[in-house]
Write a protein that binds this DNA or RNA. Structure first.
Lengths: 342, 342
DNA sequence: CTGAAAGCGCTTACAG
DNA sequence: CTGAAAGCGCTTACAG
């Protein structure tokens, strides 16, 4: 029976109209000059009957669901899991609930999830998109669902985006490697290299070696076959013409696969092969050698993105854009890339 | 303007009633003998106007939201992140969306999140509860929101629960340690030791050493201070009367903190100190020495839990319970606990 | 200070 | 085969 209690029930109990009850419950008592006494009678009844407002009905009437959709490639990826948690906390503090969806880097899946979320009338969308064009998402944003991109952008266009300073991170890693005397890096990217985060990491990285006139190579592994692709890539490495003296894994999943391989093959890091990567993980400082990685400021990325989204949701001005906001990153230099002892 | 298209709009466009349109859209055309031709006209209009049904309105009318609440202690914990992903896939496949909430092991927070989710009219709840009593959650389940416990149970009572075989896992780890010649384990538990999963891991583990008449100790660390508590605990260890020759970390967060400490202090594992833990992580097989851990069958736990929940949601028989369902676990024996070479 | 009424956008008996 | 009407549980002008 609990849960079937409605506004009418409590209105009857108190002997007032449901308008009155609604007003009181929404904190508009004062504005309408409703007496403290009446309010209390309402509160008592609410408590006695254990009334819980039906948020669905409320949403239908107000057009607001206090709900946000968070769309990422894979919530089980530690980076996105951390991001989701930060975002959840921000959202909950403001009375929002969040739907979390994983796209597996599949554009069609992303679109259908976003459409589903819009049908559920989410007030806003935060997406780490796998798309390479901006039009589809632009239409969503213009169509009344505020949207901010996170972790990846689609060019400095109409959509707001909050990302880590990927290009700079890549550059910093490369400079550090050069300083340490490394000369020929192999970059292990993703088949989804069009994604801005990955692309910029690689661009920034490669730029440095290009300027130094050093030879490098860029290879890709598939999103769904990271581990086996890494194995295949590294297995033949000595036989190939290009012999890298260090590796750059563009994200934490690739880094883990690389570490797995190097550990199994007993490759000596950093002397036989140096290693740097993106997305610092707790275990990178535990293992031997510890791993040099770029740490992204997830909390800052989330709070910035949430702030922008909130502004859009509240003002309803979905035409306004903040462009691409870049949050500084930090490189954690560790043993895997230190040829010289500092 | 897209998004503002309603059933009425498309009814007008086609020149039929919205009843008709609704019937067609819900696949009831055949049942009501609506002509193929009429259906097609509806579909065309839907497509032309880019109609998307308002799920909120639908929910209010039907009383179903096709929404599930997943409540765990922390979505950024790798174990729950994986669990959430498995659960998301199962739910999405059946047209459900899932709200994910983190409680930080705080009972009041858990209650307020669950109440919020109920106000949002979720069709069902899956919770990894921090509560030690069953009455509050029972009331929820009896009050019309089907609920299944996951990862932890509250005794073999009215609520359905799906958990890993924690006691057995603890026992297996202990037997393995004994076989390897370890004699005096230090168990590092959590201040939330009342939680069934942790409690049973410890019980199963301790039971073995008790039967062998071997001395052991159980200490606890705080949920919010795992790292510092682990440091404090292990720091004084040589000076204490009880000197362990191996450690049992009851979950992956504790294990990571322990590894961090052991690595920093250059403790030789397993010779100076053996280590076993719960919740296998990819990096456990990368690091040296690799870490012995119990692997929980997350996919199976989720599919079982989802199946039970679905049954409850569809039949509405929230009084039925399957009791506590235990899913077998596997222990991954690795170097951190191998004194004898096998 | 308070209430009757409309309406958010659907679905579903009911009637023809 | 099809439509008019009621109603899910709220909020919000509007009127007094």
């Amino acid at each position: 029976m609990a849960g079937r209690v409605t506004l009418d029930d409590i209105a009857q109990r108190v002997g007032v109209s449901k308008t009155l009850v609604s007003l009181v419950l929404n904190g508009k008592a004062e504005r309408y000059g409703i007496s403290k006494q009446t309010c209390d009678r309402v509160f008592v009844a609410v408590h006695e009957l254990n009334y819980r407002p039906n948020q669905t009905a409320r949403s239908l009437r107000t057009g607001k669901t206090r709900t946000i959709g968070l769309v990422v490639s894979d919530i089980s990826n530690a980076f996105y899991a951390n991001l989701a948690r930060e975002f959840e906390d921000l959202a909950t503090a403001q009375g929002y609930s969040v739907f979390i969806c994983s796209t597996d880097e599949d554009v069609e899946k992303e679109k259908s999830l976003i459409t589903m979320l819009r049908n559920r009338q989410v007030d806003g969308l935060v997406v780490s998109s796998s798309q390479d064009k901006t039009d589809w998402l632009n239409a969503i944003n213009d169509g009344g669902t505020p949207l901010v991109l996170i972790d990846r952008h689609l060019g400095n266009n109409t959509l707001s985006a909050v990302v880590g300073a990927n290009r700079k991170g890549g550059r910093m890693l490369a400079r550090h490697l050069v300083e340490q005397g490394f000369q020929n890096p192999l970059v292990i990217g993703l088949s989804t290299n069009h994604i801005s985060s990955v692309a910029e990491r690689i661009e920034g990285f490669v730029e440095v070696f290009k300027n130094e006139n050093l030879e490098y190579a860029v290879h890709e592994v598939g999103f769904h076959s990271v581990q086996s692709d890494v194995v295949n890539l590294l297995n033949g490495i000595e036989a190939k013409r290009f012999k890298p003296d260090c590796l750059f894994a563009v994200n934490n999943n690739i880094a883990t696969a690389v570490l797995q391989y190097l550990s199994a093959k007993n490759v000596k890091v950093p002397n036989e092969l140096g290693l740097v990567c993106f997305d610092d993980m707790p275990y990178f400082s535990i293992i031997k050698p510890s791993v040099t990685a770029v740490e992204q400021p997830i909390a800052k990325i989330c709070s910035k993105a949430f702030g922008i989204l909130q502004e859009l949701m509240e003002t309803g001005s979905n035409s306004k854009t903040t462009g691409v906001v870049e949050i500084p990153v930090k490189v954690k230099i560790r043993e895997s890339s230190m040829l010289k002892s500092n």
